[in-house]
Structures are given as structure tokens and as C-alpha cells.
Design a protein around this nucleic acid. Structure first.
Lengths: 358, 358
DNA sequence: GAAACAAAGCTAAACGTTTCGTTCACTTGG
DNA sequence: CCAAGTGAACGAAACGTTTAGCTTTGTTTC
């Protein structure tokens, strides 16, 4: 493998000049040509390790996700990569398979691994864990949280306006005349799940519905009430809880299901029971846009802009890595998009200050 | 950030000794203790760049996938990461979004990026492209192909026994008495799609069925015949082609659909038309295991061991990176698993020499 | 107690860049 | 014609490791 020294020797210039050329400095036109020729001839490539050793920047960012086996996080990663690779960064991706130990480990590994920045979709990490990480790393390496926040931990974050998402979804059902609306949410220690539940509660309060029966008892492990069921964000939960709802003596007339896998599970269960969602019962799902559009009758569905979320997180991270600390901690909430069978809501204006946030 | 020099100074030992300690060499017990203490106190971490510069190994592998937004490739990645991170490697993941230009670019980037190994699920790359890459990199950096092979390119690969997968799937349908069996395959320039089609043709030949009407005309862009439809491996294809089949004057009585998204599309279309798959018509899908199991009636489905594929690719790559070139090029075919509504086939013995391969 | 040997530690030279402080060779304006 | 100014190139030191080859120390053996 040839080095800068070889190129210098070949061209008769000094190493410093070659380096300047490589980094976009001023070099005479005739020398440019010579260097370029030499580089091609010798098959020279920059040695990123040597460069990183010297500059203390690796031009890599680490990404840590709960899993990569569901499309949502894959899309986030995809958006991130698009944004970052355009600026010459490469992305280290890893998942922790919902395991707290691995989550912390991977994060440690990355932060000792000299990445220039970190993007994390957390699940079980505490503020103390994160502080530990932040403290351990020498140079400061910005961290951006995506999709989920960590209570009491100050950090830049890019998330969905979960509260307004369910607020809007359930509002549609209310306007359609439903009085008894059920919801299937995720594990409540995950911020997205909690916020979605709050949106559900709030819209009903605002419309003067939903009295004591939607009272929740968070903290004792289960928040299940007659109309709120807590699942695990997986297919099986959606399927099981849909059936649970339908087996009630007085089932809800409409349902909101709050993530992709659970939506698939619920739709499947409905088909099995011969219930035509949308006709026989009100329904809004999450994320399964293609599927809900093509099904008949088409279903209303809330789309989370996963790829956009990755993109925005990337942009914010780029700013932080360039040393711009303005507005820290910055919280960016992206609007989700309600696709109704009638007409999609406008796709522009995806930013949303979460007006009604608790 | 403290360095080996600081640790050396603190302990009164030389840098060489500290390095020996870090790399598992012989160091006196009392010195071990001292070094360990110093490391904790000073918050020392190895600088991977300096180490890599010296050793010419980065302990990273690059992974290039068509997309990360579908669960299959995410699972492959997950398996890879599990295997490699256990040996101290970290994984660089990127996707090329089905774009040939990006595919080549990402690969180039990685291979100039000093990764120690590469895992690739190719789509449009030619043997010449790959040879170029191989030639450009100074030290040899092993490449493993996953899921798809490249014709006429010698390379270690880990793939599914696609031929036997459809062979087995369609055989089930034949045994159940079906005489007219349709198949929805993917783009035929992708090896998986082509092989799956061949399996379909061969089993029918073996059972003395399927004469001229299943003749294919590959090469003129479309291989569509009455019973073979070529889709794009996406939801919309599955939906559309299922309807196409059903709108025929003489539709098939059974159908095999050969990937996840198209299976979802087909199931959806069937529901819309009120066709009970499994009862009204024979059906075998691919990959949507959870869904097919929970649906009623449950559907037969062919599961591709995605995570295992990642695992095996990781193991093979580890061997290659350690310098063991035995048996190159090694082709590993993993058996897919047929889940029938009656009983799953045994899950052990996932290796399959593809006996009947063309 | 000397010779032989092994274990542990040390010195110093790399690895391939970047960058700081200089020098050199021109222009230009007065 | 000179002083000042400018753009391009240079020399050399550093970044934090690893490692070959050497020295010291300690133990065993006769």
C-alpha cells in the first residue's frame, strides 16, 4: 500500500503539499495534475487511521437501536445514513435486542471507540447510565436520542409528537360518532407508549367523554383498564388484545392500535373474526401504511416519519459535531401523518411543537 | 484523554510493559495490580486508531445490504453482529436502497476504509465490479456474499437453498392434490428469485406435471407465463399479481408466493376477495411466519433462517480474516423451514447441500 | 559460586498522517 | 528599485500505539 511519502517522492513535492492537496488547500494547477496522476498510478488511498490519530476525528458515528428486525428502526437508520454519508461520515450500526446489558455495553463500546457522535434509541437506560458514558469519554462526543426520550436526562432528541398522534387519531373516531373507543398501547416505561396513552386520555377529556373508566394506574405494573390495554409492541400482543376487547360483554365500537406489529396483529384477528374494520368498527392503526391503503375497505393509519426522523437526527448531530451547541438540549418533534381512507392530510409541515405536552 | 505514557509514568513501568499488559502478555502480579489501578484512576482507554495504524487491523467489518427497512436483512445483520461482536469486532452497516451506483460506492468506501472484512448482499454488481474492488485494496480483505450469489464470480457465500425451498413448498401443494399451481417470484436477475423459479419448475417436472405452459422466456425482460408471475419483491406486486391470477378465466387452484412483502400483499388481496387461503385455495407463503401461524386458518409458510445466515456468514468471515483460506470458495446453503398448519418440520439440521442445483 | 537459562522489563524505531512555523519566489505600488 | 505583501511549498515534530531486540533480574544446577 502506498503512502503520502510515495506520492511526494513521485511528484518531487513534499508530504505537506500532498496533504494540502488531499484536504482541499491551495496547490498550483500543474502540481494538482501531477499529484492526481501519481495517486492514480500508485493506487494511493488515505489511511484513515493515521489521519484519525492525528486529527482526533474518526468521521464515524455510532447508532444504537433496540432492534433492526423491524422496518421502523431500519428506516430511521436509513435516513441517518443518507444524511451523514453525504457529509463523509460513515455509520456504525448495532442493536441490543431489547437487552439492557447489551444496550449499555454497546454504548460504552462505541464511546470508547472514538466515534464522533452517537445516535441512540434508548429503552432501559437511566440518566445515571448516560451520565456515566458522557463522563467517561474524553473529548465530548454528542449524543442524540431518537424516537424515545429519557425522563430527567438533558439531551438533544428527535421524536414523534406521540401525544398529538393519538389525539388526532382518536379525534377522528370521536367525530365519526364513536363513544366507546379502545386503545392498545406499548410498555409504558417507553416514552412513546406513555405519550400515546396520554393523547388518548386528553382528547376524550377535551370532548367531555371518558370518565373514570379510563383512569390509569401506572406504576403497579399494569395500566390496563377496560378501554386501555398494554401490549408489548409485537404482533402477538395486537392479536391477543384485539380478541380480548372483542370478548368483552360490551366491546368498544372503535379501536386505536399504536404501532406496526400490533396493528398487523389486530388486523389479522379482525379478519379471523370476520369483522370488517372501518365498516363494522372504527379503526386507526399505526405505521402499516401500504397495507392499510391497499386493504378493503382501506383503513385509517397514522404514519410515523421514520426516515425523516433519521434525517433530522443526522442534521442535528452534524451541527453538534461541528461544535455548534446552540439551543441545547434541543427537542424536535416530528408530526406524524394521518392517512384517512378519504384523503391524506397534507404531507408538508412535518414539524410539530407538541402543544399539549404534559 | 490519558495515554499509555501516562499509565507508564504513574506506575513507574515502561510503555512496552503496559502494552504487554493490555495485550495479554506476561507481567508480574504486583505490576498487574498497579497497572489496573492506574488505568481505572486515569480513565485510560486504548486508542483504536493508534493501535490500528500500527497493527494494520481495525477490528471492524463492513456490511452492505440492499435495504435495512425490511425485517429479513435486519435479521441477517443482527446475526452477524452477534457473532462478530463476541470476537471483539464491530460492524459497519449500510444499505444502498436498491441503487446500483450507491451499491458500488459503499463497497468502495468500505474497502478503502480499512475494514478487515466485508459482507455483501449484492443486487446489480457484476463480477468485474467486484474484481475491481478486490484489486484496489492493498491488504486482502475477505468478502462474503450473503443471500445472493453473483454468477461467474468466485466468492465465499452463505445462501438459502432456494431451489429446494420452492421445490418443497410446491411439492406440498401437489401432494394435496393440486394440478394447477401458480407462483409469484421476484426479479429474475437476483439469484434467489431465479433459483426459486427453477425449484418450482423442477418439482412439477419430477411429478410429471407442468408441460409447455410453464416454459419460461428469461432474457426478454419478462418471464411471465400463465402460471409464473414476476414481481418486485414488494407488497404491491404480491397484491397485484394475486388479483391477476384470480382474474384469469381459469385461475390456479394453489399459489406459492416467494418473499415476505409479496406474501403480505397476496394475503391482503385474498382477504379482500373473500378467498379463504388454505381452504378455498392452496397456499404457501414465505417468511411471514408469525402472521401465517396466527391467521385462521393458519397458512403454510416457508421460513428463511435469516439470523442464522448472518451467524454463519460471520463465522466464515472470522475464519477467513484469521488467514484460513481452506476450501475457498466456500458455498454454504442453509435449509429453509417449512411450517405447515399441521406440524412444523424439524428445526435441526439446517444445512442443505442443494442437491438438485443447476 | 559460576554458568546457564528464563522471565520480565526496557529502549527506540516505526506506522502514515497533519500542522506549525518557516522559507522562497513572485507581484505590486510608491 | 525597494519594501511590503502574498501564495505556494517545505521541514520536522507530533499523534498513541506495537514490537524487535536487548538488558536486567532472579532462579536453578552443578
Amino acid at each position: 500500500m502506498s503512502t503520502i511519502k510515495d506520492v511526494a517522492k513521485y511528484t518531487g513535492l513534499s508530504m505537506a503539499t500532498i496533504s494540502k492537496y488531499l484536504n482541499g488547500g491551495n496547490v498550483l494547477e500543474k502540481n494538482r495534475a501531477g499529484i492526481s496522476e501519481a495517486i492514480n498510478l500508485l493506487g494511493y488511498h488515505v489511511n484513515r487511521n493515521a489521519r484519525s490519530l492525528k486529527t482526533n476525528r474518526t468521521m464515524t458515528v455510532g447508532v444504537v437501536m433496540p432492534t433492526l428486525s423491524i422496518p421502523f428502526f431500519g428506516s430511521v437508520l436509513s435516513g441517518l445514513d443518507k444524511c451523514l454519508s453525504a457529509q463523509g461520515y460513515t455509520t456504525f450500526a448495532c442493536s441490543y435486542d431489547f437487552d439492557k446489558g447489551i444496550e449499555l455495553n454497546k454504548l460504552r463500546l462505541l464511546s470508547n471507540n472514538n466515534v464522533d457522535g452517537i445516535v441512540l434509541a434508548p429503552e432501559s437506560l437511566t440518566p445515571a447510565d448516560l451520565e456515566g458514558i458522557r463522563h467517561a469519554q474524553g473529548k465530548d462526543c454528542p449524543i442524540i436520542l431518537v424516537d424515545r426520550t429519557i425522563p430527567e436526562f438533558l439531551c438533544d432528541s428527535v421524536v414523534i409528537d406521540n401525544l398529538n398522534a393519538t389525539y388526532g387519531a382518536v379525534e377522528q373516531l370521536i367525530i365519526a360518532g364513536h363513544k366507546r373507543i379502545g386503545i392498545i398501547v406499548g410498555p409504558l416505561h417507553i416514552s412513546t407508549a406513555y405519550e400515546r396513552m396520554i393523547g388518548y386520555l386528553r382528547v376524550q377529556a377535551d370532548y367531555g367523554m371518558a370518565t373514570d373508566e379510563t383512569q390509569i394506574k401506572v406504576g403497579n405494573g399494569s395500566a390496563d383498564t377496560e378501554l386501555i390495554k398494554v401490549g408489548n409492541y409485537d404482533f402477538e400482543s395486537g392479536h391477543r388484545l384485539f380478541n380480548l376487547f372483542m370478548d368483552m360483554p360490551n366491546p368498544p365500537t372503535a379501536l386505536c392500535v399504536t404501532n406496526y406489529d400490533m396493528t398487523l396483529g389486530a388486523i389479522t384477528a379482525a379478519h379471523e373474526r370476520g369483522i370488517a374494520l372501518g365498516d363494522d368498527m372504527g379503526f386507526v392503526g399505526f405505521d402499516a401504511v401500504d397495507m392499510c391503503r391497499i386493504i378493503s375497505p382501506p383503513l385509517a393509519v397514522m404514519e410515523q416519519p421514520a426516515e425523516l426522523m433519521g434525517l433530522r437526527a443526522g442534521e442535528l448531530l452534524l451541527r453538534r459535531m461541528s461544535g455548534d451547541a446552540e439551543g441545547f438540549p434541543h427537542l424536535l418533534r416530528l408530526k406524524s401523518i394521518l392517512h384517512t381512507p378519504i384523503a391524506d392530510t397534507a404531507k408538508h409541515d412535518l414539524y410539530a411543537p407538541q402543544s399539549a405536552m404534559i
